[in-house]
Amino acid sequence: MVAFAGLVAFAAVLAELTLTPSPASSELAGSNLRPGHSLRQYAEDYTFLAACKQIGGNLLMGAPFGLILPVLVPRRLRMVRVVLLTLLVMVLVEMAQGALVEGRAFDVDDVILNTSGALLAYLLLGRRIGRRFHALGERGARSRAEPTEATEPKQATRVKHATRVKRAK
């Protein structure tokens, strides 16, 4: 539940950051369907600090997917699922930006950077978070499946007691 709530909170922040109109950028905004084009533009036209903000911000925007999704998706092919789900969401966000939001446009480099951020976060920390969470869940399920004497039903305890009494006689 905490991971799901975190994902919902992140979705709200993501919507606020990406779907807010930017009238000042209306003249500058243009779609980019060529991978690497925006990155070259950052390197050539931006200051080093501005380029780092653009690239770093896009990497950070995808990172929560790499941390939260490992808890929500099944263990099998988890990294592939994290990457594909992030890619799908980011393509949808970029499409919404390009179609609906003034001063914003679709940029394939943003999708690549966001997805890379999710992958990096998954590799650095998300994988361990997912493993630990699922291991705790399996351990809890195992302990519920194997009743101890303290958790066995009273009738089973009575049968054991009756058997012990018969053996003692």
Rank of each mutant, 00 (worst) to 15 (best):
V108W: 02
G140L: 08
L124D: 06
Q41T: 15
A96I: 11
L88W: 13
N114S: 10
H37I: 12
A105F: 04
M61H: 04
A135R: 11
V159K: 05
V91E: 00
L59Q: 01
V93W: 02
G126M: 06
D110A: 06
A118M: 02
E146C: 11
A150N: 09
T163H: 14
S26Y: 09
P64D: 01
L88A: 14
S25Q: 15
L119C: 07
A150E: 07
E152I: 08
V83R: 00
S26R: 10
R131W: 04
L39M: 12
H134F: 10
E152S: 14
L59F: 03
P147N: 05
F48L: 13
A162C: 05
S22L: 12
G57R: 05
T47R: 02
A51S: 09
L28Q: 14
S38D: 02
Y122W: 08
A135D: 06
G36P: 02
Q54N: 15
K154S: 15
S31P: 06
G98I: 08
S38L: 03
H134D: 03
T86S: 06
Y122V: 08
R76V: 10
L60K: 01
V101L: 08
L67C: 05
R164V: 10
P74Y: 06
T115V: 03
V73F: 05
T157L: 15
V73S: 08
D110P: 03
E149V: 15
V159F: 04
V108Q: 02
A24F: 06
V73T: 09
A50M: 10
T20Y: 01
T20D: 01
L124K: 05
A156W: 07
T148S: 08
P35R: 04
T151H: 05
L33P: 04
V101H: 10
R144K: 11
R78Q: 06
F133I: 03
C52A: 06
V108E: 01
E152R: 14
G56M: 05
R104G: 02
A96H: 06
E27W: 07
G137D: 09
V71T: 09
T86W: 00
L88Y: 11
I112N: 00
V101I: 10
P153K: 12
L85R: 07
H37W: 04
L77S: 07
I112G: 04
T115E: 00
Q41G: 13
A96T: 12
L49Y: 07
E146L: 14
A135T: 09
D45C: 07
A51I: 08
P23L: 14
L60P: 04
L92C: 10
L69Y: 05
R144E: 09
N58Q: 02
R139D: 13
L69C: 07
H161M: 02
S22H: 07
N32S: 14
Q97G: 11
A145G: 00
H134S: 14
Q97P: 15
A141T: 12
S26G: 13
M79T: 14
A141P: 13
G103S: 03
Q155A: 15
E102S: 08
G66E: 06
R104N: 01
L124C: 14
A24P: 01
A96S: 14
A135I: 11
A96D: 11
G98F: 11
A51P: 01
V73L: 12
